[in-house]
Simulated assay, not measured.
Amino acid sequence: MRVEFDEPRCVAAGQCALVAPDLFDQREDDGVAVVLEAEPSREQHDEAREAAAVCPAAAIRLVEE
């Protein structure tokens, strides 16, 4: 799995960082999300899926390989 993030779409809601803190964080200055792990381990796949599902801007896309 690979995480693709469309930064311009991000509305800084922070939902991704709340549900998947090992995969996402937020910038201090504007709250826009930051991808910490673009290729999550198999154990993190459920977290990544949940983060993508709760993103209100649909800025997170998961590519299943």
Rank of each mutant, 00 (worst) to 15 (best):
G31H: 14
D29A: 03
V11P: 01
V63D: 06
R61C: 06
V19K: 02
V34H: 02
C10M: 14
Q15D: 10
Q26S: 08
C55R: 00
C55M: 04
V19I: 11
E39A: 14
A12W: 15
V35F: 01
V32R: 03
A33K: 04
R42V: 14
D46H: 09
L23V: 03
A51P: 12
A53F: 04
A52Q: 04
D46K: 09
E43A: 06
E43T: 08
A58W: 10
D22T: 09
E37V: 07
C55F: 04
D29K: 13
G14F: 15
E28H: 07
F24L: 03
L36V: 11
R27N: 09
C16W: 15
C16T: 06
D29F: 13
A13L: 06
C16Y: 05
C16V: 03
D22V: 04
V11R: 06
D30T: 05
A59Y: 00
E47K: 06
P40H: 05
L62A: 08
R49Y: 13
H45D: 15
E64L: 15
A53Y: 09
A13D: 14
A58F: 13
R61V: 09
I60C: 06
D22N: 12
H45F: 12
F24Y: 05
A20T: 01
P40S: 06
A58H: 08
V35A: 01
E39T: 15
D29S: 10
V11S: 07
C55A: 02
R61W: 06
E43D: 09
F24M: 04
R27F: 11
P56F: 03
P40Q: 07
Q15A: 07
E39M: 13
C10F: 14
L18G: 07
V11T: 09
H45P: 14
I60E: 00
L62I: 12
A12I: 08
A57E: 12
A58N: 10
L62Q: 03
V34C: 13
A38G: 11
G31K: 15
Q44W: 00
E47P: 00
I60R: 06
E39Q: 08
Q26Y: 14
A48Y: 02
E47G: 00
C55I: 04
A17N: 06
R27C: 08
E65P: 13
